[in-house]
Amino acid sequence: MDKIREIIKKEWSEVFKNRLVLGSVILMPLVFTIMPLVILRGMQSGADVEMADMASGLPDNFSLMCEGLSSAACGQFFVLLQFLSLFLLMPMMIPVTIASYSIVGEKNTRTLEPVLATPITTLELLLGKALAGVIPALTITWFSYGVFVMGTSMIATDKALVGAILSPIWLIAIFVISALLSVAGVSLSIMISSRVNDPRAAEQLSSLVVIPLLAVFMGQSFGFIQFDLTLVVWAAFGMLLLDVVLMYFAIQLFQRETILTRWK
């Protein structure tokens, strides 16, 4: 455990000195948190009738999620939900950025051989690197979500809106699925990073992991998919399974011999 902690500390002290990485890690949560609050503030000053009209045009199955909300609050909830989904992108994108630079960076500076020559196991090394990406990603995501909830409670006139974004569905999504997504993102980054030499290429390729997630959000927006508690719980189990598979392949691909003899 000491070695894993040391790897994490080293990664943070190194990776966060990279302005590009630091910028990406800070900018994304800032935009994803502030933008919906600004829009919500704008919607509060709009007429309730406009919001009610908007709610009437929403997909049929979405109205089930508006139980207990006024028509105006339902319209606002629909808009906020599009942004709330972005909180699930954050835990994937942040570790992808960190892990891409962390692993490919080691390749470029030839620092991995001295590390592998120490009595550290591959699992300890990969866990350290993975956690170095996952921990800040989840901290930032959860903190941003907290700011988002607090901002909403201060801005929204209909307090039931706060209850809607604090529903069990979203609590599971933010606190469980986001962690699982984060692990998936970092595992994929490790796999991709062991095959490319440019951190930006690794990051861009790893970013493709968000495409299935975006497809799910689009499906929800257009009413093809409706998030309910059962679906979210099953999604969490599905993600857990996917994480195990991805981690397995990440460890398999991260072979000491391959790293030393083929990484150029």
Binding site: K10, E14, T109, R110, T111, P114, V115, A117, T118, P119
Partner: peptide, 24 residues
């Protein structure tokens, strides 16, 4: 190793203390 393989953005002391930890 053939190339020193040091962490350029870390201090000399930090480089050594990191590896010292890995070497227990």
């Amino acid at each position: 190793t053939e190339t020193p393989g040091l962490y350029n953005q870390l201090s000399a002391e930090r480089n050594l203390s990191f590896f010292a930890k890995l070497y227990e």
